[in-house]
């Protein structure tokens, strides 16, 4: 059965988005992308170092195979983010943008006020906007209202590999969502990704957990399996847990009043 991920007007088979940062080398990154099965990869814009040119990332990313998702990494406010998104579009990269506004250099936590402001402007300019946010359900609703194509709540701070520390808030976001929910940041192991998918997340974005693993290619494959397992489990409808150690609460019957009525 086909189970496609639909974001804006596009459909994808894979529910694993990959970041391209921090890989030991570009060939390893290329092989990890391949092993992960991903169809969406994020890239960043940076000033060219005119003194020591580096190899070109895009020579290692097959654009027929992957949708490039430029992020606004480095933006500290809405103006920065809008400027970066416009640059990426003018360069023909994409009119999709992963909106990141992270003035906090220590945890790279997103600024909700600037993110909402930037999202509103970018949607008006015709961008397909995928905002990276703290796991705040109200912010998620506000971003949907201004027309974002997804919301991307963090599971834990970027690069922390701590898993779904924001589980309860993400559950509320999922319950209320009208657009796909991408759990982004903090997922450190395939089991974390599976957990997010079991909860009903539409997809996850992983970077550090793969790129910094001892064997990034094998870890990319492991995440692919974790995401697939979690998705299948969600679709299958997991069996209920049974409480252990709690005495069953005796309660009086509630439906006796129906006896003798029609």
């Amino acid at each position: 059965m086909t189970d496609l991920l639909r974001i804006a007007d596009r459909e994808f088979r894979s529910r694993l988005l990959l970041g391209t940062g921090k890989f030991p080398s570009l060939p390893v990154m290329r092989d990890a992308l391949d092993a992960s099965g991903t169809e969406i990869v994020t890239v960043t814009l940076r000033r060219i170092d005119l003194d020591s040119p580096e190899p070109n990332l895009l020579e290692f990313v097959d654009r027929d195979r992957y949708l490039l998702l430029p992020n606004t990494s480095g933006a500290e406010d809405a103006d920065d983010a809008v400027r970066l998104a416009r640059l990426a579009r003018a360069a023909g990269l994409s009119d999709w943008v992963k909106l990141e506004v992270t003035p906090d250099p220590r945890w790279l936590l997103p600024d909700p006020v600037e993110t909402l402001a930037a999202a509103e402007r970018l949607v008006k300019e015709g961008f397909t906007v995928l905002p990276y946010i703290g796991a705040d359900p109200v912010l998620a609703k506000r971003l949907q209202e201004v027309g974002c194509a997804t919301v991307m709540p963090l599971g834990a701070p970027i690069g922390s590999n701590r898993g779904l520390k924001t589980r309860d808030s993400i559950a509320i976001i999922l319950e209320q969502a009208e657009v796909p929910v991408v759990v982004d940041a903090g997922l450190g192991a395939p089991s974390h990704a599976a957990e997010a998918m079991e909860m009903g997340a539409d997809c996850v974005l992983v970077n550090t957990a793969i790129s910094v693993a001892r064997d990034p290619v094998e870890m990319a494959r492991a995440f692919r399996l974790g995401v697939e397992a979690g998705r299948a489990a969600w679709r299958a409808g997991r069996a209920p847990e049974r409480a252990v150690g709690e005495g069953a609460e005796a309660s009086s019957p509630l439906t006796g009043f129906l006896r003798g009525t029609a």
């Binding site: 509630l254 439906t255 006796g256 009043f257 129906l258 009525t261």
Partner: peptide, 12 residues
């Protein structure tokens, strides 16, 4: 709805 039914449904 009749009284008895309404009373019962309050708890549900």
């Amino acid at each position: 709805e009749p009284a008895q039914l309404r009373d019962g449904l309050v708890r549900l």
